[in-house]
Computed example of a mutant assay.
Amino acid sequence: MAHTHDHRIADGAELALQAQHALEKAGEQWTPMRANVFAALAAFGRPASAYDVAESISRSEDRRVAANSVYRILDLFVAKNLAQRVETANAYVVNAHPACRHDCIFLVCDGCGETTHIDDDVLTDSVRRAADRAGFTPIRPVIEVTGRCHNCAAN
């Protein structure tokens, strides 16, 4: 059975406020551009690339936003636990509990791209211990399982 810890999943304005507080607590500024990137990423509801986010902001602000600027912000968000990178999709998702730092597991559907985030500290702690035994110091384990979601598997 998976060990879980208490954290509350937020969304909308509450999630943006939690992200802002977490970023400021980390000594960074919550700029209008960072707020726009976070809001755009959160609105996708699926993993989104920097290009997706840049295009979304460009449309909403009727001005061109460069993907390289978005990449820098997304990298900061990952470093400060506001977003997570889904490696197999080369994309990002918002962290729905930015005040809670732990390793995550992503289930990525090969059919529709839906990505589900699950927490299993027993499993991720085991991965960290195995890395330690191999003489490797893990920084941020990334565990992704590709397959078919319930809807795609039924079709």
Rank of each mutant, 00 (worst) to 15 (best):
G45S: 01
A91L: 07
I57E: 07
R8Q: 14
C104R: 15
W30K: 00
P98T: 10
R64Q: 11
S49G: 13
R101F: 08
A79H: 00
C100S: 12
T31M: 01
V53A: 04
D62T: 15
F106E: 00
I118V: 13
C104N: 12
S56H: 11
F77A: 02
Y92G: 00
R46L: 06
I73D: 03
L17W: 07
S58H: 04
A79I: 01
A19M: 06
L82F: 03
H21G: 08
A89F: 07
L15K: 03
T115G: 01
N81Y: 09
I57M: 13
E87A: 13
I105E: 06
E14S: 08
H21Q: 15
A19L: 06
D75P: 02
A83Q: 06
A42F: 05
I105P: 04
R72V: 06
E55W: 05
N36R: 15
S58R: 05
A48S: 02
D121T: 12
E114H: 15
A67C: 04
H97F: 11
S49C: 11
R8M: 15
F106L: 05
G12N: 04
D121E: 12
L17N: 12
A66I: 06
Q20A: 15
N68W: 14
L41Y: 02
S60F: 09
R63W: 08
I57C: 11
H117G: 10
C112G: 10
V78F: 05
L41A: 02
R72Y: 09
S69H: 07
L74Q: 02
G27T: 01
A54H: 00
A96I: 05
